[in-house]
Each structure stands twice: as structure tokens, then as C-alpha cells.
Design a protein around this nucleic acid. Structure first.
Lengths: 106, 106
DNA sequence: ACAACATATAAGCATATGCTAATATGTAGA
DNA sequence: TCTACATATTAGCATATGCTTATATGTTGT
């Protein structure tokens, strides 16, 4: 498995869950504290913290303590680069290797 | 949750699993029969069939029976469109809504 | 219709995931 | 240092996921 594969796989694990996807949607509007995210998403604080830890492990978000609060933000550079790689990869692959006699309309 | 959210979430569920990601990688090289995928990915035939069903439910692949065999292919139009939407979405959101006093280097 | 092959589906089980409740850690102000 | 607040971590439990084995369905050729 290439590095990109692994990255994309992590990415998938990250967003392949409704709660985490909602957190990311929230963060796309701008950085938010855990409390803010908790209120918006509507799960318990521990649950949100756990999801944030997962998202962080997937490199989809970054965090920074500001006083008592911790602010999270989408790791935009990383995520965009990753998605772009995937798009490019798909575009390239699509132009090559079609097996004889197995073409189906794609 | 918007339609795009739901779609991306499905997408994430689809690729957020190693076996399914390897199947997709295989299919990116061109359409393949279940037997071919099974040999390449190295899981049991039933397990592969189950994963293919999941991928199909996520709209990430399409299939077509050809005689005794069933050929699967990446649903490239759909997937590319989806990824592009996400990239666009992220690019747009990134330029807007930063909350005052909460900016962190992203 | 029957045999051989390709794929799909179902049942059973082990592991992973995600929630809640309780508790620990970290930070700021009195 | 004590208190209040914000977040993280842990334990326990219920559900979801993914594998294997066994079986069913679909297709072709005889």
C-alpha cells in the first residue's frame, strides 16, 4: 500500500462517520472551540472530544490551546492536497488500462 | 445534512476500510471480474463480494454481468464529481468565516 | 434437465466502534 | 493554593463491522 493509499484510507475513516463529518462541516466555517462544536453537533462533550481525537489522528484537524479553551480547525492544506492527489490519480488511471473485452460504460 | 454531506459521508464509509480501498485501487487500473479482484486482493470470494456490495451501495463502483462473470468498475464520473465538489467546497469555505480572536494558523 | 463454474447471500462469531457516566487533567483568577 | 471552568481520558456496555463456512442463485454448455 502506497503512502497516498494510507493517507486516503485514514481520510476515509475520518469522514466516514456522521458525527465526525458534521464536526468537519462545522469547522469548515472556521475554527471552533470544543464547547462550540459540542453545542452545534449535539453530542456529549466526551464524545466530541473522542471524535476530535480521531480526526486529529487522521490529520484532518489541528488544534491549539487558547487559555482554558482548545480551538480546533480543519487542516485545510493537508486535506486539499490529499483530495487533489486523489482526483489527479483517478483522472490519470482512468485514461489508461482498460482490459480488452471487459469494458463497461464508466 | 445536505445531499453533498450525505454523499461524502457514504464515500468516506466506502474508502475508510483497507480491503475496500485496495479493491478500488485495483479497479482504478481498469474493470475487473470478481475472480480477478479476489486473486489480487487476497481475501475470500464471499468477503470480496460483500465489500463490492458495500462499494456499490456507496455508488463508488458499478457492475455488469458478462456471461457467468460479473465485471466491476470504478464509478469514475460520480466519484470525480464528488471529490471535485468537496475540493471546491473546502476552497470556498476556507476563504470565508474566520471567527474573530480564534484564528489559528491553518 | 444436469453439471460445472462464477458470484451472491446467510449464519455465526470475534473484534472494532461509539456512546454514556465517571473521573482526571489543565488553566485562570481570587 | 483553592475554586471554577474547559477539555481529555477511562471503563463499561451495546451495536456495527468484517471474516469464515456453508449454501443459494445465476449462467453456459452438453
Amino acid at each position: 500500500m502506497t503512502d497516498l493509499c494510507r493517507e486516503i484510507n485514514k481520510f476515509g475513516k475520518g469522514i466516514g462517520n456522521e458525527a465526525r463529518y458534521r464536526i468537519l462541516q462545522t469547522l469548515l466555517k472556521g475554527p471552533r472551540t470544543v464547547g462550540e462544536i459540542t453545542r452545534v453537533v449535539g453530542l456529549s462533550q466526551p464524545s466530541i472530544s473522542q471524535h476530535l481525537a480521531t480526526l486529529k489522528a487522521c490529520d484532518l484537524v489541528i488544534d491549539e490551546r487558547q487559555g482554558k479553551e482548545v480551538v480546533y480547525a480543519v487542516n485545510a492544506e493537508y486535506t486539499l492536497k490529499l483530495l487533489q492527489s486523489l482526483v489527479d490519480d483517478m483522472n490519470v488511471q482512468r485514461k489508461n488500462g482498460r482490459k480488452k473485452g471487459k469494458n463497461i460504460k464508466i
